[in-house]
Amino acid sequence: MAYSEKVMDHFTNPRNVGEMENADGIGEVGNPKCGDIMKMYIKVDNDVITDVSFKTFGCGAAIATSSMATELVKGKTIPEALQLTNKAVMEALDGLPPVKVHCSVLAEQAIKAALSDYYQKQGIDPEPIVGKISECEECHFEEE
């Protein structure tokens, strides 16, 4: 399994990493059992994502996809950010190994979870706008 240079670049020099004080929205997806947790923080001004940051527990691809997702939504309007797909994250990273595709799904969902939290804080029901946060479709752990 080999990562692209872009993945390694975003893994070694992750953009927008760290906690954010007074974030307008915070979203967290994944679970420790799967080995991936992504937490996204956003600042919103006039429907524009003015700032974004992340914290991630996970593999190289989880860190790189988080980093790339923040880059792709920074400065974008909320409707634009909602268009972000896992495919776009993957393409921006010059691809991911097949077993790591779920990381890009998680990154897409983490952005949506942060937006969902933003709407909730505004007293707006997020589901009609953001949709359901489905998390990682490939993680089907049987309940013990």
Partner: peptide
């Protein structure tokens, strides 16, 4: 230092 760095960006560690 590598462990510190990874933990500093880990929500699980938090």
């Amino acid at each position: 230092p590598i462990i510190d760095r990874l933990r500093s960006m880990s929500p699980l560690w938090e």
